[in-house]
Simulated assay, not measured.
Amino acid sequence: MEMMKALVIEGVHELIYKDIPVPELQDDEVLVKVRACGICGSDIPRAKDGGVHSYPIVIGHEFSGNIVKIGNQVKNFKEGERVTAAPLIPCHSCENCSKGRPAMCTHYSFIGSRQNGAMAQYVAVPSRNIVQITDKVTYEQAACIEPITVAIHGIERIAHLQSGKTAIVYGCGTIGILTMQCLKAKGIECVYVIDIEDEKLELAKKMGAYKTINSSEIDVPMYFEKHGKVDYVFETAGVNILQSQVLSLVKKTGSVVYIGTAHHDVTIPSKIFELILRGELNVTGSWMSYSAPFPGNEWKAAMEYLQSGKIRVDEMITHKFHLSAGYRAFKAMLDKRQNSLKVMYVMD
Score class of each variant (00 low, 15 high):
Leu341Tyr: 06
Asp19Thr: 10
Ile9Leu: 07
His92Cys: 12
Gly71Ala: 00
Gly254Ser: 15
Ser127Gly: 01
Glu24Arg: 10
Glu225Val: 13
His264Ser: 14
Ile57Pro: 02
Gly154Ile: 09
Ala85Trp: 00
Tyr258Ile: 11
Ile276Phe: 14
Ser98Gly: 10
Phe224Trp: 10
Glu146Ala: 14
Gly309Lys: 02
Asn96Leu: 08
Cys91Ala: 08
Leu161Cys: 09
Phe294Trp: 05
Thr174Gly: 00
Glu202Tyr: 08
Gly176Glu: 00
Tyr327Ala: 06
His13Leu: 12
Ala329Lys: 01
Gly112Cys: 03
Leu341Glu: 05
Ile57Asp: 06
Pro21Leu: 12
Lys78Ser: 14
Ser291Glu: 07
Leu275Glu: 15
Pro87Asp: 05
Ile241Trp: 12
Gly279Arg: 04
Val246Pro: 14
Asp231Gln: 13
Gly117Thr: 10
Val68Tyr: 02
Lys48Gln: 14
Thr166Asp: 08
Ala142Tyr: 01
Gly279Ile: 11
Thr267Asn: 09
His153Gly: 06
Ile175Lys: 03
Ser64Met: 04
Pro295Val: 06
Arg35Pro: 05
Tyr108Thr: 02
Thr179Met: 14
Gly50Ile: 07
Lys5Asp: 06
Lys78Arg: 07
Met344Gln: 05
Gly171Ala: 07
Gly112Met: 01
Lys320Arg: 09
Tyr17Pro: 02
Ala103Arg: 06
Pro23Arg: 04
Glu10Leu: 00
Val313Ser: 03
Gly50His: 01
Trp299Phe: 09
Asp43Ile: 04
Ala301Arg: 07
Lys336Val: 13
Arg312Trp: 10
Ala302Glu: 06
Lys336Arg: 14
Val250Tyr: 06
Ala204Leu: 02
Gly41Thr: 07
Lys336Leu: 14
Ser289Ile: 14
Val34Thr: 13
Gly176Phe: 11
Ile39Thr: 06
Gln243Leu: 14
Ser244Phe: 13
Ser64His: 02
Val68Leu: 01
Lys99Asp: 09
Thr236Leu: 07
His264Pro: 10
Met288Cys: 15
Glu315Asp: 05
Ala124Met: 00
Ala47Met: 03
Gln141Ser: 07
Val233Met: 06
Tyr305Asn: 02
Gln338Val: 09
Val131Ser: 03
Asn72Met: 12
Val283Phe: 02
Asp348Ile: 08
Glu24Asp: 10
Ile177Phe: 00
Ser215Arg: 15
Met104Gly: 08
Tyr327Asn: 09
Leu249Tyr: 11
Met104Asp: 12
Ala237Ile: 13
Ala85Glu: 00
Gly50Leu: 08
Met333His: 01
His160Thr: 09
Ala142Gln: 13
Ile133Tyr: 00
Phe77Asp: 01
Gly112Tyr: 05
Met207Tyr: 05
Ile20Lys: 04
Ser98Ile: 05
Lys5Val: 09
Met207Arg: 08
Tyr345Gln: 04
Gly309His: 03
Lys271Arg: 13
Leu178Pro: 05
Ala262His: 12
Leu275Phe: 04
